[in-house]
């Protein structure tokens, strides 16, 4: 019985499939490589940069907007081919979840060492709003500086959306003994964090927020708080008490499992691609600071940095 349904399914699907497939070749397929664009500048510029690199190899490229969390499921199913900015703490979970289901492969790591951590804008240090920062112990004495309307007199940590690291920060606040002085508020997204940062900067008021580097905020100055160093097993999930900071994280690249076979040359280049913190910062700054459009920024970067990306293609 099962085999009948199976055959039936195969017949129907065969008819359905006929719409999409086309002939194959040994070199890179001419089908476009689908690169996702998310809603932050460095990612979009880098999408166009990597797209430019692929095009220099003679590949066709297509850009598709996608949600940065949902993209891994799309890569798994082949709707999108690659992802070039997989941030460890933010997207690691979605990435590994899709990988465990099969269909997504790890295509190497960028040179950029990332850090995703709570921190304060530079002026908080410069104006000495909380003496002793960036050492975390200083927080004990200046909860008032970071208090907000809804924090009930406590200082507030503005964490990213809960989907990024779950309860990591609330656990850390308690593990460090700051539970009576600080609360964690989850922002709805990066936009909310940037809006809060911009607003706080205008007022020159204190703010503790989650941020990462490389990011466009690097240009304006952002200081990460120095928590007790990360050690293996210090987090609650790994059996520790959670009283440690974030590790230096990786910035990975992901690809659909068919990518190496359909576009061998492009995949080879993609796995070699490795940008440094500075380079990622440059790309973001072209848009965020110089106000170029994303495409123009990518063109400019590619034109000015041939020595950086040409080697990837060889």
């Amino acid at each position: 019985m099962f085999s009948i349904t199976k055959t039936l399914g195969a017949i129907i699907a065969g008819a359905v499939l006929a719409f999409g497939s086309s002939a194959a070749i040994a070199k890179d397929s001419s089908k476009p490589i689908v690169i996702p664009t998310h809603n932050w500048s460095s990612q979009v510029v880098m999408a166009y940069v990597i797209g430019g690199i692929f095009e220099s190899l003679g590949d066709n490229v297509e850009y598709k907007p996608a949600d940065s969390q949902a993209v891994y499921e799309a890569i798994r199913l082949g709707d999108i081919t690659i992802s070039h900015e997989v941030w460890q703490s933010t997207f690691g979970k979605s990435f590994y979840k899709a990988m465990s289901k099969g269909g997504v492969i790890d295509a190497g790591t960028h040179a950029a060492a990332t850090l995703e951590e709570m921190g304060v804008p530079q002026y908080v240090i410069d104006d000495n709003l909380c003496p002793g920062l960036p050492n975390w112990e200083a927080l004990k004495n200046c909860k008032g500086v970071f208090a907000t309307a809804d924090s009930g007199g406590k200082g507030r940590w503005l964490e990213g959306p809960q989907s990024w690291h779950g309860d990591l920060m609330p656990v850390r606040v308690n593990a460090l003994g700051l539970g009576n002085d600080y609360v964690v508020k989850f922002a709805g997204g990066a936009d909310a964090i940037w809006a809060e940062l911009a607003s706080a900067k205008k007022e020159g008021r204190g703010i503790i927020t989650f941020n990462w580097t490389p990011n466009f905020t690097d240009a304006e100055g952002f200081v990460f708080i120095e928590f007790p160093p990360y050690t293996d097993g210090c987090r609650v999930a790994d059996g520790g008490d959670g009283s440690c900071g974030s590790p230096k994280g990786w910035l990975k690249k992901a690809a659909n499992y068919k990518f190496p076979k359909t576009h061998p040359a492009a995949y080879k280049a993609f796995s070699k691609i490795s940008f440094t913190t500075t380079q990622v910062g440059q790309m973001a700054a072209l848009v965020d600071v110089d106000k170029l459009s994303h495409q123009d920024a990518a063109k400019k970067w590619l034109a000015e940095n041939e020595d950086v990306w040409k080697p990837f293609t060889r």
Partner: peptide, 24 residues
């Protein structure tokens, strides 16, 4: 209702399922 099809691009058999082929 899994379906095995030969994908010429990766030169290998792929397993897919009926529903996903229809929706796609």
């Amino acid at each position: 209702l899994p379906i095995e099809t030969y994908n010429v691009e990766i030169e290998d058999y792929e397993t897919s399922a009926l529903m996903i082929e229809i929706t796609r």
